[in-house]
Amino acid sequence: MNGEYSLDTTEGMAASGDPPTNNAVDDYDAEEALERQREEENKIKIKLKSFEGGVYECGLTAAKMSVMVANMLDALQETDLTKIATREPIPLQNDAVTNKALEKIVEWVDHHWDDPPIDPDFDDEKERRNEELSHWDKQFIDIADQGELFDIIAAANFMDIKGLVEVGAKHICNKIKGKSCTEVREMLKIHNDFTPEEEAAIHKENEWIYAKD
């Protein structure tokens, strides 16, 4: 087999005359190795501590979906990853990270940590934005208690878990779709800080949106 495709022959790649790919994930073997590593690392469980003091266990790879947690772990400069498991729980100092919210967040990352990575050749950012939520995500985020839902979104935002913030955002926007202004305001409990005159002026400007063919 041509050495160009194996992981450890950087020499071979340079000699082949082909510009070496700086993106190692482009290579199937490298991709495979990375995946195995992620699998192994996820067997290591770390502890996360909510603002209310509740401690929740979570696979390492899953926990690293939170950019904030990943950065905190990096800062430890721990080469022996198994030692991370025996450490004190990582405190999440934001009042949105309630026990309930953290429990749900751990459930989400545990389900999503092995999602296939985004391939820029096939996944267009614009298309992804318009993509519907998966069945699992829809059920996950369909939470009756709006305060709890907002806690999860705010907590995911604080922990910097982009995928989960997106799920929450799409869920809210789906609920807004097709509703009247008054209905939305009531549903999301938004305080109207416009004077009646100001509001009427905006309505006038945007009245074309209600036009029908």
Binding site: K177, C181, I202
Partner: peptide, 12 residues
């Protein structure tokens, strides 16, 4: 959606 944006500008 663009539609919803124009309808919801008056929210706050």
């Amino acid at each position: 959606t663009l539609d919803d944006r124009f309808r919801c500008e008056c929210m706050s």
